[in-house]
C-alpha cells in the first residue's frame, strides 16, 4: 500500500450491514402492507424486519464509533461527514415542506374554494370557509363522512410550554458544545443531560396533548383536513424529536465514556445540528399549526 498514509482517504472494508439493513426494511414494509390489508402474518414479518433493522443499525453505528475512536477519520473524512449531514438535513427540510405545503394548500386554496361555488350547483351549500375546518362532509369514496365536531388545539397551553422547552434545549446543547470546546467534560455531560431531559419532557407533554385531543377535544386523525394536517405535522415532528433524543442519548453515553476531543467531535456536532433543525421546524409548527 501507499507509504503516504496521511494523504489516504479512509475507504471502509466490505460490510454486510447495508444489505441486511435493506432486507430488514423489505420485511418491515411488506409486513406493514400485509397487516394494514388485514393479513395476520404481517405483524410477524414486521417484527422480524424491525429486529433485523435495529440490530444492524446498532452494529453499524458501533462500527463507526470504533473506527472514529481508532483515529481512522481525519480532517478529510470529517469534511465528508459534514457535507453529508448538511445534505441530509436539507432533504428532511424538503420532507417537512411537503406537509407544510398540504397545510397551506388546505387553508388558502381547498377550504375557501369548497365554500365558493354557486349555491345552485354545489353539494356544499351551507359550508362556510373557516379555519380550523373539518370540511363540508358528504358521501365520498363509498364512505359517508360527517364533519367531526372538535375543539381545535390552542397555542398558549402545552404548545407554548413545549416551545420554551425546545428553545431551552437548543441553549443547553450549545452550552454542552462550549464545554466540549473548552475540554470541560463536566459541562459537556451535564449540558447533554439537560438537553435529553428537555427532549423527553417535550415528548411526554406531546403524548399528553394527543391524549387530551383524542379523549376530550374530539380532535382525531379523522377530524377532516385540520385533524389530518395537525396530526401529520406534529406526529412527524414528534417522531423526529424522538430520533433526535435517541441520538443525544448515544452521544451522552459516548461523552461519559470519554469520547470526543475539542478538535475532533463530528458525532456531537451532527447530532447538535439535527437537534437545532428539529427545533426550528417546531417554531414553524407553533406559528402555523397552533397559533395562526
Amino acid at each position: 500500500m501507499s507509504t503516504q498514509t496521511h494523504d489516504k482517504y479512509f475507504v471502509p472494508t466490505p460490510s454486510l450491514y447495508p444489505v441486511i439493513l435493506s432486507g430488514g426494511l423489505l420485511l418491515l414494509t411488506m409486513g406493514f402492507i400485509f397487516s394494514t390489508n388485514s393479513y395476520a402474518a404481517g405483524k410477524w414479518l414486521m417484527l422480524l424486519g424491525l429486529v433485523l433493522m435495529i440490530s444492524m443499525i446498532f452494529r453499524w453505528f458501533a462500527k463507526i464509533i470504533a473506527e472514529s475512536q481508532s483515529g481512522m477519520y481525519r480532517t478529510w473524512e470529517d469534511k465528508s461527514f459534514r457535507w453529508g449531514m448538511i445534505a441530509f438535513i436539507c432533504s428532511e427540510i424538503a420532507f417537512f415542506a411537503a406537509f407544510f405545503g398540504a397545510l397551506f394548500f388546505a387553508r388558502i386554496i381547498s377550504v375557501p374554494e369548497l365554500a365558493s361555488f354557486d349555491p345552485a350547483f354545489t353539494m356544499y351549500k351551507d359550508f362556510v370557509a373557516t379555519w380550523p375546518s373539518a370540511g363540508p362532509g358528504g358521501h365520498v369514496l363509498g364512505r359517508d363522512y360527517q364533519p367531526a365536531q372538535f375543539t381545535p388545539m390552542g397555542a398558549w397551553g402545552i404548545p407554548a410550554i413545549n416551545t420554551l422547552i425546545l428553545l431551552s434545549s437548543g441553549v443547553t446543547v450549545t452550552w454542552a458544545h462550549w464545554g466540549l470546546l473548552k475540554n470541560n467534560r463536566r459541562q459537556l455531560v451535564w449540558g447533554l443531560f439537560f438537553t435529553i431531559a428537555l427532549g423527553l419532557a417535550f415528548i411526554g407533554l406531546q403524548a399528553f396533548e394527543y391524549h387530551h385531543a383524542y379523549t376530550e377535544l374530539g380532535l382525531t386523525l379523522g377530524a377532516g383536513v385540520y385533524g389530518s394536517t395537525f396530526f401529520m405535522l406534529t406526529g412527524f415532528h414528534g417522531f423526529h424529536v424522538t430520533l433526535g433524543t435517541l441520538m443525544l442519548i448515544v452521544i451522552w453515553l459516548r461523552s461519559i465514556k470519554g469520547h470526543f476531543t475539542p478538535e475532533h467531535h463530528f458525532g456531537f456536532e451532527g447530532v447538535a445540528w439535527y437537534w437545532h433543525f428539529v427545533d426550528v421546524v417546531w417554531l414553524g409548527l407553533f406559528v402555523f399549526v397552533y397559533w395562526l
Binding site: A106, L114, G138, V140, G222, G227
Partner: peptide
C-alpha cells in the same frame, strides 16, 4: 387509505388536486 385522514378528500376539506 388506511388511517382515516382527509388530505385528498373534498368531504373532509382536502383536495385531490393537492
Amino acid at each position: 387509505r388506511h388511517f382515516g385522514t382527509h388530505f385528498f378528500d373534498a368531504a373532509g376539506g382536502g383536495d385531490p388536486i393537492l
